[in-house]
Design a protein around this nucleic acid. Structure first.
Length: 440
RNA sequence: CGGAGCAUAGCGCAGCCCGGUAGCGCAUCUGCUUUGGGAGCAGAGGGUCGCAGGUUCGAAUCCUGCUGCUCCGACCA
């Protein structure tokens, strides 16, 4: 992409409403624009990151055996009356009437709908286990939206719902998601720690929150420091190996880790003092097992091998990609701007033409650009006639992991500079070597 | 939902107390000079002063109502 043709409204000054660093940087980097309290338009740069986050979420959900579908944003009130949550949910639910005065709502979650869908088709234990997920916009009419897309009213959510014949099967489904979550966050460059969680209004008795550590996090968390160095299960993990998967989950839950709501100071105190970690954290995922809480009121049951009818055991598993984008920035930024992990960077590489109009510099940039594009690399070519300093500032602000600085100085020696955003280091290398390095 | 505050150009703000035909910085556009860490000079464009009423010869400014947004607290993927 040529910057001169792109839509990247960078702000030099910070809109005053932005309090936390991720919100400020997202506005400055031209990633989002507020349209209403807690409602945002995703501008091209922000959308690129959001899509990359979703792609990783999808890959790991699919790897763990979950199947994607797509449910609507608008649901009927009747569906929610069936579970009894229409009245319970309160003012957080955005209620709407259509032209026929039918009561509708903008979905805050989809347990009811997915249960209704499965009830309609699944009649035999042979169809189980089943895990269906979708990535869809949701709306919760928060009393006080804040922190940009971190706590917005409209937000993108991946929610998966598992269906099993019995509690043991459900436990296995839970473990699949548990491992999938470890992998998902790890691939985004985050260290996410599963913590024992309150099951909240959704209910159930088995639940973990996935927390990443960030000084700006809103919850207080306590855990064993060994979690920070734990190896995440590999891509070759056999998700059908029940015992093996349980072993992985056990490894990841045997050490102490809890949010302040579930904090047990005795257990925490039992950790050797130097390994005690009290920090602030951001919740980026939450998984639940809730048994027959929804299948019972919906009459979602299957016939088992014994010929009898069994209530389906369910779990649900959420990740908020829109929130994750903010969380990623909270976890990775500096004074100059965002420091994207490569896996989610809007563009992996930036080419900075430090002297637009100079024929040698222009030619070298065009050549590099063409070759990187041909190699299938996401590259943003700053071909504008801004001064070098402004280009450095912009590239650092939007967090491009690799920046190729092309100017007359280094070009005189047949070189360009390859700069790493994460530590600011630069190397003088030939254009051919840059290609080599970035495509390796 | 309790408490506090704000609303003037794309962004950040001044002007309001004390009414008199709307201003600054950044951004944008044109020209010239610059050109390796957010350049300089000269010029230009851009605003129903959140909305609706009222007071007044005259309202961004005073009064009333409304709307939107932000912050603190309780709640929350």
């Amino acid at each position: 992409m040529r910057l001169s043709r792109y839509f990247l409204p960078i702000l030099r000054e910070v809109p005053k409403e932005a309090e936390i660093v991720s919100h400020r940087l997202m506005l400055r980097a031209g990633m989002v624009r507020q349209e209403s309290a807690g409602i945002y338009a995703w501008l091209p740069l922000g959308l690129r990151v959001l899509n990359k986050v979703c792609a990783i979420v999808r890959e790991e959900q699919n790897r763990a055996g979950a199947i994607e579908l797509l449910m609507p944003t608008i649901q009927s009130a009747d569906l929610w009356r069936e579970s009894g949550r229409y009245d319970d949910y309160g003012k957080e639910m955005l209620r709407i009437r259509d032209r026929h005065e039918r009561e509708m709502l903008f979905g805050p979650t989809n347990e009811e709908m997915i249960t209704e869908i499965v009830r309609g088709y699944v009649k035999s234990y042979k169809s189980l286990p089943l895990n269906l997920y979708h990535i869809q916009w949701k709306f919760r009419d928060e009393v006080r939206p804040r922190f940009g897309v971190y706590r917005s009213r409209e937000f993108l959510m991946k929610d998966a719902y598992s269906f099993d014949l019995d509690a043991e099967g459900a436990r296995h489904s839970y473990n699949k998601m548990f491992v999938a979550y470890l992998r998902t966050f790890s691939r985004m460059g985050l260290k996410a720690i599963p913590m024992v969680a309150d099951t909240g209004p959704i209910g159930g008795n088995l639940s973990h929150e996935f927390i990443i550590l960030a000084s700006t996090g809103e919850s207080e968390v306590f855990c064993h420091a060994d979690y920070l160095d734990k190896a995440v299960p590999g891509a070759g993990t056999d998700f059908e190996d029940r015992a093996g998967l349980q072993g992985l989950v056990d490894q990841w839950t045997e050490l102490y880790a809890a949010t302040s709501e579930k904090h047990d100071s005795d257990a925490f105190g039992a950790i050797p003092e130097p390994r005690r970690l009290a920090a602030r954290g951001i919740e980026v995922g939450h998984i639940f097992y809730f048994g027959t809480k929804y299948s019972a009121p919906f009459g979602a049951k299957v016939q088992g091998p014994d010929g009898a009818e069994h209530m389906i055991h369910m779990g649900s598993y959420g990740i908020g990609p829109s929130r994750l984008v903010a969380a990623l920035i909270e976890a990775s930024h500096d004074e100059a701007g965002i420091v994207w992990p490569e896996a989610v960077a809007p563009f992996r590489v930036g080419i900075l033409n430090l002297k637009t109009g100079d024929s040698a510099t222009d030619a070298a940039c065009e050549d590099l650009y063409a070759r990187l594009v041909a190699a299938g690399i996401d590259v943003l070519y700053d071909d504008t006639d801004e001064r070098a300093g402004a280009k450095f500032a912009s590239a650092d602000l939007i967090g491009l992991p690799w920046q190729i600085l092309v100017g007359p100085k280094s070009l005189a020696a047949g070189k360009v500079e390859l700069k790493r955003r994460v530590d600011g280091t630069r190397e003088l290398v030939s254009p051919d070597d840059v290609l080599e390095r970035l495509t390796a």
